[in-house]
Write a protein that binds this DNA or RNA. Structure first.
Lengths: 133, 133
DNA sequence: GTTAGTGCAAATGATTTGCAAACAG
DNA sequence: CTGTTTGCAAATCATTTGCACTAAC
């Protein structure tokens, strides 16, 4: 086995750039479409592969949508945090709250559960979408 | 159109009973398999349809798993609450925490998002699974 | 030259839907 | 009877994988 050496490729960088360019959660399909629209020649498969790779490296965040799709987002902060996601446009804002982590840990322990992890997702309508359509 | 009259059927009740009998989140497929194993003659399609129906009526809770499946759980309490779900066996315990709701509302409003809703999922290993295998 | 990355086409797997037969009211 | 519900098979659809090929190092 050994550490798989990662090569620097045009497509790989393009995918990362595309996610960073988005201001909210975007599905793999959307990111691919956006790249094609921007003139990038990339296969859908490759986009999926890089997205998973980046998520594994914790460079981006993965979020499972209600309709079964997976949405990704580039995160600037590397400490634990959550997001408020706009139901309409997908724009997201990072929010910070140390209390939640503590609460989750305590709540889980209280009922005898070990190694608790948590996932918090807050959805709402962003300022943009409230005004416009 | 008009309100579609809901008829009482053997299958419909069997599905509800099956979900109530489970002590944790179970996927539609698992519930179907369990019913078949119990001798119930029910089609997979029908199980899916009733599960959706029950979720729409808020009789049961729907949870999107990381692997893409949808898990359902029967909830006894009707006020706002969350669950701690066991990673191994799926058993879940209801936990209560009014603070989370407040926090989510405030956090969302603070960044200008309207009509916030939230979803909190805490995962851990239950006492059973810590001891046993 | 080796090894990792690419991308098309085909496979997967959970969920949905079309539709004719079975059933509740 | 009349409108629902059922359930099989076929359709969807996002995501994954097989594999021959190209690009990195």
């Amino acid at each position: 086995m050994s550490a798989p050496v990662r090569k620097r490729t045009r497509q790989g960088e393009a995918v990362l750039r595309a996610v960073q360019a988005s201001d909210g959660f975007r599905s793999a399909q959307e990111i691919h479409a956006q790249m094609r629209a921007a003139g990038e020649a990339v296969g859908l498969t490759t986009v999926y592969r890089h997205l998973q790779l980046l998520a594994d490296d914790h460079v981006i965040d993965a979020l499972h949508l209600d309709d079964g799709q997976i949405a990704y987002r580039f995160c600037t902060t590397d400490h634990h945090h959550h997001h408020v996601v706009c139901r309409q446009c997908g724009t997201s804002v990072e929010i910070d709250c140390p209390d939640i982590g503590d609460w989750a840990q305590r709540a889980a322990r209280r009922v005898g559960f070990a190694a608790p992890t948590h996932r918090v997702e807050v959805f709402g309508t962003c300022p943009e979408c409230q005004t416009g359509a």
